[in-house]
């Protein structure tokens, strides 16, 4: 247990066990069906300023005191204090050390190459990224294919830096190494495992 001050921290899940299981289920769905847009049962969580309900719910579900996290949230933000209080997760200044990356404002400064893509012996040790985007909807835009997709899946994403897709593709080309990504927006969630091929 990590002791953190409770001053001015918002509540987490209403029912920690059941809510976390429901959100975990939707994360599984999202990763099993890349690009499919799911609604996270995020009404059960009071998201702090700076985090979308989906990001907050997924954070509460996946982060704990054994997962090192890198985030671009400012050090004094209420969202960071909230995560520290409810998840007890340690934060690292070095993305390469992090099991999870929480990217609240993806901009040109985002360098995917700095995250750990795993090793040939332990590809599962690669980082998983939660990325907040401006819009996430089905329809013309990106064309996704690969395991978990029957033919072709389309996805519209706005709010990512220009080099995001080419850099991701280069990193994920060295299979089985790569980065697993969860795109979040409002209470929506879409999974993008490393095996998915994305064509703009």
């Amino acid at each position: 247990m990590i002791v953190t001050a409770a001053e001015n921290v918002l509540p987490g899940f209403n029912e920690p066990t059941i809510d976390a299981q429901r959100v975990f289920r939707s994360v599984l769905e999202a990763m099993a069906h890349p690009g499919r847009i799911l609604t996270v049962p995020a009404d059960r969580v009071t998201a702090p300023a700076g985090l979308s309900p989906a990001a907050a719910a997924v954070g509460l579900t996946l982060l704990d005191n054994e997962t090192m996290v890198w985030t671009d949230l400012p050090a004094a933000s209420p969202a960071l204090a909230w995560l520290r209080f409810h998840c007890g997760c340690p934060f690292s200044a070095d993305p390469g050390q992090a099991a999870f990356g929480l990217i609240a404002a993806p901009d040109a400064g985002l360098d995917l190459d700095r995250f750990f893509p795993g090793t040939d012996e332990a590809p599962e040790a690669a980082a998983t990224l939660f990325v907040e985007v401006d819009t996430l909807q089905a329809g013309k835009g990106l064309r996704l294919s690969g395991p978990g997709i029957d033919g072709l899946q389309t996805l519209q994403v706005r709010g990512l830096p220009e080099d995001f897709w080419p850099v991701r593709q280069r990193i994920c080309r060295s299979h089985p190494l790569g980065l697993d990504i969860l795109l979040v927006c409002g209470d929506l969630l879409a999974g993008l495992p490393r095996t998915t091929i994305v064509n703009g």
């Binding site: 247990m1 409770a6 918002l10 509540p11 987490g12 920690p16 209080f85």
Partner: peptide, 12 residues
């Protein structure tokens, strides 16, 4: 009052 963290049991 409202709970920020409902009573929960763990180990230290």
């Amino acid at each position: 009052y409202r709970f920020i963290r409902r009573p929960e049991t763990g180990m230290v």
